[in-house]
Each structure stands twice: as structure tokens, then as C-alpha cells.
């Protein structure tokens, strides 16, 4: 299963002027992992699909990362 967000640790210089952000993140939404959408994928209920912007849970991309509480270490 793919993740919708990736995290990486940039180089931190001993001479950086500001307190470092040790973890950076970027978005890897679901369309990157689906070469051609297969037929018959599960669908949201119509009202939820209208709210979310897609019929298919497989294409839904939350933002910001709902699992993340901040860019701190660990």
C-alpha cells in the first residue's frame, strides 16, 4: 500500500541561521500509482462523492496529512 505523503531529512548545516526543520514532507497523491484506472472500483455514496470531489476512494487525496501533527522530529 502506498502512502500519500513522504518524509525526508534534509542536510542540516552547523552554520544555519534559523532553527532547523529536521523533517520535510511532500505529497504523493494516488494518481501517481494508477497507470490506468481499472473498471469497477468501489465508489463513495453520491453525497459523499460530491463532498470529496471524487467518486472513488482510490482517488481520494487528503490534504494536509491527516496523520501528521507537525514537522517535529520522531
Amino acid at each position: 500500500m502506498f502512502t500519500q505523503f513522504k518524509y525526508w531529512e534534509p542536510y542540516i548545516s552547523p552554520f544555519d541561521p534559523c532553527p532547523p526543520m529536521r523533517i520535510k514532507s511532500y505529497s504523493t497523491p494516488p494518481q501517481l500509482y494508477i497507470p490506468f484506472q481499472p473498471k469497477g472500483l468501489p465508489q463513495f455514496k453520491p453525497m459523499e462523492a460530491l463532498y470529496r470531489g471524487t467518486l472513488w476512494p482510490a482517488l481520494f487525496s487528503p490534504y494536509p496529512d491527516p496523520k501528521k501533527r507537525g514537522d517535529q522530529d520522531e
Partner: peptide, 15 residues
């Protein structure tokens, strides 16, 4: 490079 960015690496997740 795009594939590297998409890769699921060291499964560590930072919450």
C-alpha cells in the same frame, strides 16, 4: 527520479 520520489522507503512514519 519520479519513481524514487514515489518509492516507499524505510517505512518510518513521522507523526
Amino acid at each position: 527520479a519520479a519513481e524514487i520520489l514515489k518509492e516507499e522507503r524505510d517505512k518510518k512514519t513521522y507523526y
